[in-house]
């Protein structure tokens, strides 16, 4: 989770990722952020987040992203 939060803070230092739970639904993260985030997560965790994973439920909170990463790692 710490590694994820560090990546998120690098992309959007202005957002409190520990508190927000509607990052995509409320437009806090836009499509540019998502693209940067997916590229960084794929590289940092050596995973392959695919196009079908790009749904709001997977990116609405840091917790949801953490769960996506864990699913991809297993």
């Amino acid at each position: 989770m710490d590694k994820l939060l560090a990546i998120l803070a690098d992309i959007r230092p202005d957002v409190d990722f520990t508190a927000e739970t509607k990052l995509v639904t409320e437009g806090i993260l836009d499509s540019f952020d998502i693209v940067a985030l997916v590229a960084d997560l794929n590289a940092a965790f050596n995973i392959a987040i695919g196009l079908t994973d790009l749904v709001p439920e997977n990116f609405d909170s840091a917790e949801a992203m953490d769960s996506l990463i864990n699913r991809k790692l297993t």
Binding site: G27, D30, V35, V38, A39, L51, L54
Partner: peptide, 22 residues
């Protein structure tokens, strides 16, 4: 463009922008 013709924008995002960018 996030507020105008939203379904065209989201179509473009999911089927053109994301596949190209990634």
């Amino acid at each position: 463009w996030r507020r105008w013709h939203i379904t065209l924008g989201s179509w473009m995002r999911d089927y053109v922008f994301y596949p190209l960018s990634l």
